Computed example of a mutant assay.
Amino acid sequence: MPERGRPVPAGQAGKITAKGGATEWIHWQSGTAQLLPRLIARRTRGPLFLTDRKAPAGTPTLDVCPETGRARLSYRRAEEIFEENTRLLANPLASPDDIEDLALTHDAEDGTSIPMLLARSRHASARSLERYARPGVDSVARHVAERDPAARRRT
Rank of each mutant, 00 (worst) to 15 (best):
T61M: 00
V64R: 01
V64T: 05
C65M: 07
C65T: 11
C65R: 01
C65H: 07
P66R: 09
P66N: 12
P66L: 11
P66T: 15
E67A: 08
E67T: 12
E67Q: 11
E67I: 13
E67R: 10
E67S: 08
T68R: 04
T68S: 13
T68Y: 03
T68L: 05
T68A: 00
G69D: 05
R70M: 03
R70Y: 08
R70I: 08
A71N: 05
R72V: 02
R72S: 04
S74I: 06
Y75P: 04
R76T: 15
R76C: 06
A78E: 05
E79L: 14
E79W: 14
E79T: 15
E79H: 12
E80G: 00
I81L: 13
I81G: 04
I81S: 05
F82N: 07
F82L: 13
E83T: 10
E84V: 01
E84L: 11
E84C: 06
N85D: 06
N85S: 05
T86S: 10
T86W: 10
T86Y: 07
R87A: 13
L88P: 02
L88I: 06
L88W: 03
L89W: 10
L89I: 15
A90F: 10
A90Y: 08
A90N: 02
A90W: 11
N91S: 14
N91A: 10
N91I: 14
N91C: 15
P92I: 12
P92R: 14
P92D: 11
A94T: 09
A94F: 07
S95P: 12
P96Y: 06
P96M: 05
P96G: 03
P96T: 08
D97E: 15
D97L: 14
I99R: 02
I99A: 03
I99T: 10
D101F: 03
D101E: 09
L102V: 14
A103Q: 00
A103R: 04
A103W: 08
A103F: 10
L104C: 09
T105S: 12
T105C: 05
T105Q: 07
H106V: 14
H106W: 09
H106G: 03
H106T: 13
H106R: 15
D107E: 10
E109I: 09
D110K: 09
G111W: 13
G111I: 12
G111M: 09
T112F: 04
T112Q: 04
S113I: 08
I114F: 02
P115G: 02
M116H: 07
L117T: 07
L117F: 12
L118T: 03
L118N: 02
L118V: 06
A119L: 14
A119Q: 04
A119T: 11
R120P: 01
S121V: 11
R122I: 04
A124R: 09
A126L: 03
A126C: 01
A126W: 05
R127E: 08
L129A: 06
L129C: 03
L129I: 09
L129G: 00
E130K: 12
E130A: 15
E130D: 14
E130W: 01
R131M: 01
R131P: 01
